[in-house]
């Protein structure tokens, strides 16, 4: 037995390994053939769920082969700068699309504001009904990193507006992005946090929405990448996201709609 086992087992494992490789390569070849050239949409992680909901409602969506690629805005920006084969980029901020535009990596006039983010105060341990909960709060507060994450910058501005920033500054737990902050609060690791209102709405939770005049608007912009070979389709998707119905849908998901009367787009140019 002791003598038989190793040769038998090694043969079996060799067979398994070869089987895996064959299976992998054949399946890969099949899946590659079956699909038309995809349109790749690079989207900031916090907007990915909302984008999926929007695209699910899109008429004739079966005609298109859309691939959603989500990562942190900063990672996607770095990858686009180094030649990532993306067609459309939905950023969580306005800075990165502007930088790409300045580097001549985007299609002219394709930069548009597609959503305005909203922030909210929320706790998973106790109900929060008013921003007053912050006034005498001495525990840890979770916000996204104000240096790198737009939702974190907004949180810092709101806390500054409330004259709480100097006091609360040393009690902050900062997440690398707003998703991490949401997870920290949701897992009750941090008792209180400032998260995106869209995260609360999409997870059927509720917090205290922070008035929008407490912070600079969280402008989320999109751009079409210059190297795209499917500009027409990319434009179609961009138009679809910006049209009134989609914007109304975004509003129901916890974003502020970008209306035609909204001067932000023009002011930014």
């Amino acid at each position: 037995m002791g003598k038989l086992m190793p040769t038998f087992l090694s043969k079996v494992s060799l067979a398994c390994a070869i089987g895996c490789m064959l299976f992998a390569s054949t399946t890969f070849a099949i899946t590659e053939k079956a699909q038309a050239k995809p349109l790749r949409i690079a989207v900031a992680a916090n907007f990915a769920p909302a984008l999926k909901i929007l695209l699910d409602d899109m008429p004739n969506k079966e005609q298109f082969n859309l691939q959603i690629i989500s990562a942190a805005t900063g990672t996607l920006y770095l990858q686009i700068k180094h030649g990532a084969p993306f067609d459309l980029f939905l950023s969580a901020d306005a800075t990165r699309p502007e930088l790409l535009e300045q580097a001549h990596l985007t299609l002219e006039n394709s930069r548009k504001t597609y959503a305005l983010g909203q922030i909210a105060l929320w706790s998973a341990t106790q109900p929060v009904s008013h921003l007053n909960a912050l006034t005498h709060y001495a525990g840890k507060l979770a916000i996204a990193n104000p240096e790198t994450a737009p939702y974190g910058t907004a949180a810092q501005q709101a806390l500054t507006y409330l004259s709480l920033w100097p006091k609360i500054k040393s009690n902050l737990i900062t997440g690398i992005n707003i998703n991490q902050t949401f997870q920290q609060v949701r897992s009750q690791a941090v008792p209180l946090g400032i998260v995106a209102n869209s995260q609360l709405v999409m997870n059927k939770l509720s917090g205290v929405i922070i008035p929008t005049h407490y912070y600079q608007p969280i402008t989320q912009q999109l751009v079409i990448i210059k190297s795209s070979r499917q500009v027409a389709l990319a434009k179609k998707i961009s138009d679809y996201i910006l049209q009134t119905n989609s914007q109304a849908k975004l509003q129901s998901l916890g974003y502020l709609a970008v209306t035609s009367s909204n001067p932000l787009d023009e002011a930014k140019r």
């Binding site: 890969f28 899946t31 590659e32 699909q35 995809p38 790749r40 691939q67 690629i69 989500s70 990562a71 990672t75 770095l78 990858q79 990532a84 084969p85 993306f86």
Partner: peptide
């Protein structure tokens, strides 16, 4: 893979 792959389905995801 996160840095150099780009999360592309069927290719680098």
């Amino acid at each position: 893979v996160l840095m150099i792959g780009g999360n592309i389905p069927g290719e680098t995801r």
